[in-house]
Design a protein around this nucleic acid. Structure first.
Length: 300
DNA sequence: CTTCCGTTAAAGTTTACAAG
DNA sequence: CTTGTAAACTTTAACGGAAG
């Protein structure tokens, strides 16, 4: 197929369609009418001899062929866009760009206060929206260009992504300030005897905690299991339970909830917190800028 | 049944291009 | 520079499948 026979704008439509999974949303994003997108899709279907997107209850899902095209097309368009806009660097002071960041709930409490304050000074018009890294497919969201950055302990993101280390942190035991353990520290025996709150959030690397403890042959009394960290502080404050959490979370939660920490008697590998971005955004000035801000604020 | 949403069709407008 | 034509776009309206 000769490129001159291809209306390259159709690829832009294809890209938006794949990103949103809905014709009307793609149309809005492209600034044309919904039939216009439908029409363009029709032409692309004829051109490529494939249905490309099938109508389902969950929107327009790509055929295997379209799925295969999506990434190369996105990369190519990204490269073109980057080249044509190379002269226009990102201007944080005047930008009204909306960024989407993937973090879990600890990430929000830890990163957002400082990040928002930094943005307040440098980029008053920029807005941030966060999404849970545990409830969505981060890889997919990033590939589609719906998420700009992700921060946290996400060992699953490798190929196609860039990452930069922000910090490492050990896991610690955390419990009420006037808990008996606050004086003595936590021995292996006491660790075993205590009632535990477990935080099980799928998709993050945090699951290693339970695995490691399990593998060490230690049977804990898991009295409460929750999918995120938010509930942990109040629960520990009100009970004699203990939890194993990343240290920076413990630092944030100690004061507001009157909690104390102690080293964990079980050896648990450190939690490695990175900032991740997709290869397609590697050269995007806005993305580069935001990464830079994150690194300046949070990298050790 | 109603609502939502994609598709299709019709009619008019805009745009690009080439010929006069 | 003007004009004719084809292609693509827009809006409007009607249609139909899917979901609640």
């Amino acid at each position: 197929m000769d490129l001159k026979d291809v209306d390259l704008n159709l690829l832009v439509v294809f890209n938006e369609l794949h990103k949103h999974g809905r014709v009307s949303a793609a149309a809005e994003s492209l600034g044309i009418s919904q039939p216009g997108v439908s029409n363009a899709l029709g032409r692309l279907r004829t051109l490529l001899g494939d249905e490309l997107f099938l109508r389902t209850s969950r929107g327009m899902v790509p055929t295997p062929y379209a799925q295969g095209l999506a990434q190369p097309i996105a990369d190519a368009l990204g490269a073109l866009h980057g080249t044509l806009n190379a002269r226009v660097s990102f201007d944080p002071a005047h930008s009204e760009r909306a960024f989407v960041i993937g973090v879990n709930d600890v990430g929000e409490t830890y990163f957002l206060p400082r990040l928002m304050r930094a943005l307040d000074a440098a980029a008053p018009g920029v807005t941030i929206r966060t999404v849970r890294t545990t409830s969505i497919d981060v890889r997919d969201e990033m590939e589609r260009g719906r998420m700009d950055l992700a921060m946290g302990f996400l060992p699953g993101l490798k190929s196609g992504f860039f990452q930069r280390l922000l910090f490492r942190q050990p896991y610690v035991c955390i419990f009420r300030q006037d808990h008996p353990l606050a004086r003595s520290g936590v021995s292996a025996r006491q660790f075993r005897a205590a009632e535990h709150v477990a935080i099980v959030s799928e998709g993050t690397g945090h699951g290693v905690v339970d695995e490691v403890i399990e593998r060490a042959g230690i049977r804990r009394r898991l009295r409460l299991t929750v999918p995120h960290f938010m509930a942990v502080g109040p629960v520990l404050q009100a009970t004699d339970m203990i939890a194993v959490v990343p240290r920076r979370f413990a630092d944030c939660a100690s004061k507001p909830f009157g909690l104390a920490t102690a080293p964990c008697p079980v050896k648990i590998p450190e939690s490695v917190i990175n900032v991740f971005w997709h290869a397609r955004n590697h050269r995007e000035p806005a993305n580069q800028w935001l990464r830079q801000v994150v690194v300046e604020q949070f990298a050790d």
